[in-house]
Structure formats: structure tokens, C-alpha cells
Design a protein around this nucleic acid. Sequence first.
DNA 1: GTCTAGTCTTTACC
DNA 2: ACGGGTAAAGACTAGAC
Length: 828
Amino acid sequence: MKTSINFIPIDYDYFDFNGKNCIKIVGRTDGNKQVCVLDEFEPYFWAVFKEGTSDKRIREIQEKINKIKIETEFRTSIIEKTEICDKKYLGHEVKAIKIFVTNFKDCHPVADHLDYEEIIARREYDISMMTRYIIEKNFTPLVFKKITGEILNNSQEFGGIDNVLETDLAIKLEKLENLEKQPEFSPKILAFDLETSEFDAEKGEILMISIAGKNIKKVLTWKAKESKNKQDFVECYKNEEDMLESFVKIINKENPDILTGYFSDGFDMPFLKARAEKLGVKLSLGIDGSKPAFTRGKITSSSIFGRVHVDLFRFIDTVFSQYLQSETLGLDSVARELLGEGKKEHEFKKSEKIKEHEWKDFFEYNLQDSVLTYKLAEKLWPDMLELSRIIQEPVWDITRSGMSQLVEDYILHNLKNFNEITEKRPVHNEIEERRTKGKYEGAFVFQPIPGIYENVVMFDFTSMYSSVIVTYNLSKSTFLGNTQIKGNKNFKEANEADLGEEGKAYFSTKPGFFPIMLKEMVEKRKKYKSEYKKNENNLTKARSNAYKLIANAAYGYQGFFGARYYCREAAAATAALAKKSILETIEKIKKEGYQVIYSDTDSIAFLQEKKSKKEILELLGKINKNLPGIMELELEDFYKRGIWVTKRDGEFGAKKKYALIDEKNKMKIRGFETVRRDWCDLARELQSKVLELLLKEGTPDKALELVKKTIKDLKERKIKREQISIRTQLKKPLSEYKSITPHVIAAQKMKEQGFPLDIGMNLEYFIAETREKKALVREKVKLMDEKGEYNIKHYLEHQIIPAVENIFQVFNIDVKELAQDSKQMKLF
DNA sequence: GTCTAGTCTTTACC
DNA sequence: ACGGGTAAAGACTAGAC
């Protein structure tokens, strides 16, 4: 029976049937029915012919290709058909042959087979099946389409797959049409969280599992008995197996579109898998009863068919963290910032030592983790939705992709508008080759003169590097070479970039697909930003942010060695032309009679002096009138005061370190220890207050009093331990450290205490007094729960004084002397 | 053993 | 392996004396 429905695709997967590739997409109708759409997939790749290959020769080769047959123990693949097409490859017009192969997995072997000197490139065998399918069918994730097809009911069509599906409907796709008006859609989200007896799944058990959603809050456990004073949300089971089975049942009954956890790729899912296997429980979480699948990579990812498993931490880590103030990305701090509530406090103990009332606290703690994760997922949903629609990749993928992957996916899905054959992914030795080329010259940073300045104006270029790429058409396909070829028409009007010692780079003036795509991104970002300002809502904000994200990553993408469209020259030229532009702008501002005091990459700070704001804006307009292409300078802000300090050693001004205060007394602090996570709070808070007092008052008196008081408190041991804790991240495995720093010692101590060391974890320690005189800092390291007193000398000389010394030097005040004076006072 | 330049390391800026 | 380069700064470390 045929039917037509409005359908929104959510989760994508594929399977093989009779040696062919088939696609299964799970989504919802506008009436919220769950549907699985099944479709066949026609895999193909391209072979590109050398320029000038005769039609006759092309047909000869086509005949030979048609006869290729690949036999493996699993299936036989043949060339289903071939087509000769006019295409573009890296912007050039080419003849190419489109080769359809029975099974996607055999594209690469067939491509390896094509050994003809006329074939200069074999392409697109390395594009994932899902990406290819979405491109071919224009079946964009999370966009409603009108689909028509045959309802499958106990059919043998796809090997009887519809029989095991728990969906309301299974349809064999026949027609796909766009919908003008998009129905509303919000997915059903469920969050879960495990508590275990050990961090290691080999040794530990799952003590409890919490589940939270719109209408559900539960903790499943086998560590409590049914009783009258049991908490309502707790469900008791007789053992771990029963609990796991019930977890599976509840997930299937609730039937969420999205199952989310916090760090669940790294912890909860692998743990669940390990325990389920050990206990012989089938983890049938998929809508067809399938187990979660695990893909290996640097970080293992886990997927469940029919539900999108989202590890919120990964999305926040790569995409959302830039919008957060929080210094760490743990559930507690992220939830506090976005939701205004944090995790429950809890002291972890070994199971046998937990008393009954402590179990109750533990259950509440466990539930709260899921509740927070659920609320965060709801809050971040617009951002995941918009990013998925813009990149045109499923939510599962975009929540796990790095920046370069997001940019690349955007390109892949948009190349069809340019009739372009996609460049291949670099292979291992190509990556090595790219990496050995080393760095190129980057941005310009102005050497500031230390001092406190009044009335500072800050200009900056809007999306500078993106604007440069678009304006000068910098990309792999528009790169012409490093030397000018005489008489070549392309070069006559080429864009030139001076790369210094590396010579010059030339780029075509005929717009390439990469700069064109980037221009569209910048324009759309502008459009949705103004739309958001007119009518503030989460979706336009998320859309604007998503475009901004991709546009900002475009420059890094071209310089990234793993990119398909890697072009070191384009990246180097972007930095070089940006540098040229900012230097010229600085000169222009100077010529107009202003004193420029600082500049970093895309911003310029100068003194307003006696000029009015109107005159400053006129200056801005004048500069903008003469800027090429889409380059644009804008007013960042007016500041009533700003401070720049010297470097620790030497008399020169420190770059990337300054503090400003605007007319509303709002501070902007950059680079100072205040904003550095690896300094103790005492030093950071003191410095922050000192900067604020100085910038508000313009005189050092009040700030100096504060420093004196802090030194006094420190010496009198009045400082609380949390104020002097030093937090440093563990960036690699302990064995890889060449130099044994204090934080390595802290890590070793934690390991000895039985804490698992994870890369990226924060280590917390303090510097303690020692009985004997120890030369090295690392010999004084103690963990926060160790006994001992803080080392007054260390905190004075290595935290407090360094944090404020350079600031007071601007006023010719020697803080070191001051500290010594008070030391002598105490001695007498 | 002590001094110092250089290296390693983390974190920031844009 | 899973954007880029520029920069500050602390602590360790190797080499010179």
C-alpha cells in the first residue's frame, strides 16, 4: 500500500542486503509517529581524465572499466553502469567517468584497479555512505520532507527488516519532495547516568542508573531494599542483571529520539557494554533490538540505531565551550552557568562502607546528574539542530566532529552547486609531508609601551581572516603558484601575497568555490545576526552562531594538514595579507594624528585625546571607504582607561596582556594572571581587584592598601586552603613527560591514592612548608587533602608579588620592597 | 655546588 | 590526526665554571 507523509529524518544508518547497500532512516511524522524509511543506495566514484584525452580513448577505457568484477568472500561486485560527464575538478573543466559499483565497500578496490595514464585522479571513493546518500537525495537531517512510498508489512523486500522494527511505520522510499512550510518539531530527549563501584569496568559493578526526561525521573538500583521510607524515584532490583534488563525495557518503552549522557562516550556506554557482556544481558537499546555499536578512534564513540546517542560533553567541548565563561567543562560548572544549578554534593565511598541514609543521598546525587544532563540537552538542542541542518550531517556526527570536519562536511554537501568532484582525503604519507613543512608566518602583534592610558578607542576587523580569504580569493583551487609566469593571462590580474622569506604566492581573481562558500557563510551570519537582534529567539541565535563557527574555522581548515582542501600557501597568504592590512590601517590612523598604543591580529587600540566620538566614527568611515572587497573595520568600544605592563624580564611592554575599563565600569582583562586557570585564586582575585581599583581611580593608593593587607594575611596564615590551591591540567600520559613539573608530582600522588588519571583532567595541589630546605618546587607539592601548611615564602614570591609587581611598576612603586619591609617589621 | 641559558609545559590571545 | 600562529611565564635541566 502506498502512502504520503511529512517526515523529519533524525537517525541515519545503513546495512547490506543481497550484496547491495541499503539505507535506513528513523524519524518522525508531523503527527509524531515514529517511522523508518528504507531506501536503496547506488554507490559510485569518479575517474578524471587528463586534459585532451580523445573521446575515442575515453570510450575505450569506459568499455574496459565496464568489465571489472570484484569477488570477495562476502559478495561479488560488478560495475553496474558508467557515465561520461563534464565536471569540474579543483575549478578546472574536466571529462570524468562516473563509475557505479554494486557495493560501496568495493569502490576503493575498483578505484585501485584503474591503472591508465589518461586517468589522472580517482575521487570520491572515500566519502562516507551516509554523506553521499544525503547529498544525492537532498535528504537533509532534521528538515521535514514530503515522502511517498510503499508501506512495508512483513515484506521480504529488505530481508524482512521491517519485522523487527518497533516503529509505527516502515516505508520504502519512492519520492522525496521539499516542504515549503516546516512543521514544529521537538525531539523526545532522555538523559541517563551511571554510578559504579570502580572507575574501571573490568573491576567494578554498576550500582545504579538514573534516567531523566520531561515526564520521568528514576533511579534504578540493586543496592536498596523495598521499604516504606524508600524514595519515590528509586526502583529496586534484586541484582545488577535485573537492573540492566529493566533499564533496557524502560528506554524502549519511553522510546526517546535522543539518548544523552555527559561524557557517556568515554564512560557510561563502554561501562554498560562491559557489564552487560559479563552478566549476559542483551543491551537491546536500538529500535530494532540491536546493541549499541562502538566505533574506534582516538575516543570511542557509541551509537544506537534509531536513537541519537549524544555525548553532551563532546558537543560542548568542541562547539559550545566558546560561548561559556566556565574554566572547566565538567557537568557541575557547565550546568551552573547555563542552568543556574549544579550537582549535588557527594562524598564517594566504597559500597560496603555506605550507610543506609548515605545511599539515599547517593541516589539523589545520581538522579541530579541525569536531570542536569537532560536540562542541558534541552537547552542546547537549538544549537545542535541548526548546526546539523547547516552542515547537513546527522546530529550524531556533528556532536562528535572537530572543527575541521565540520568545515569539510559543509564543503562536501555544497560542492554539487559547483559541479565539482570532491578532492580526496590525504593519506598517511601526504599528512607527514604536510606536517614537515613547518609553520608559516602568522599575525602581527604591536609592542606596547607600558603605562596607564586615558580614553582608549578600540577598532577591529569583522571576521578578518574570512574577509581576507574572500577578498583575495585564497584557496587550493585558486592557487596559481609561487612564481609569476610571463604572458600568462591568469597571472596578469592575479592576487599577490608576499610570504616573506618563502617568496610570493599568486591566486586567481576568478572566484573559487571555497571563497564563494565562505562569502555565503559570512553573509548568512550577518543576516541571521540582524534577524536575531530584531526578534530574539533561540533558533536564529543558534543559526547565527553556527554560521559564525564555520566561517571562523575556515582559515584554520586550509592550514590543517588533514584537510582535503589543505593549502598551506592559501593559509600563509591569508595571514600575510591580514598582516599587511592591519599595518596599513595602523599607519592610516597614525597619519590622522592619533597615537596607536596596541594591536593584535585584527584589532587596533589608540588614544582618543581631545577628539569627539563623532570624529572617531568619521575616521572609521574614511578607513572603510578605502578597504578592498568585503574587508570591514568596526568600532569595538570606547574605554575610559587602560593599562599595559612590562614583561617579567626586561623593560619592554608585554604583548597579549592588558586591562581596560569602559564607560559603564565594565572590565576587559586579557592575558593577566587573573584569567589564567593555573594561578591560585588568592593571586588571581587580588590582581583582579588591583586592576579594577587602578582603572576606576586612576591612582594606586587603594590598590596598594589591598596588597599590603593580603601580604599581611598571608604571613599570618589567615588564608584558606582553597584560596591557595593550584589547578593544572594533565595534558598527556604521565610517562610522556620529559620534565618532572609540580603538576606531574601531583598526578603521581593521585595515582598512588588509586584515582584513575585521565588525559584532560584537572590536578589540584598546593605548595607546602617542608622540614628540610628543598630547592625544587615539586618537592613541596601536596594534594589538597594532605596535612601541612602552605609555604608562605613560595606564595609570596611566586604568586602574590609576581601577580601585582608589574602593575605597580607603571606607577614606579616597588612591591617587592614593600613585602620585604613588612617581613622585617615582623622579624623585629 | 652554583649560575644561567635553553627546554618543556601550560595557558592565554586573536 | 581530527583548524592556525603568537606570546608570556614558571619550573626544570643540562652545561659551564
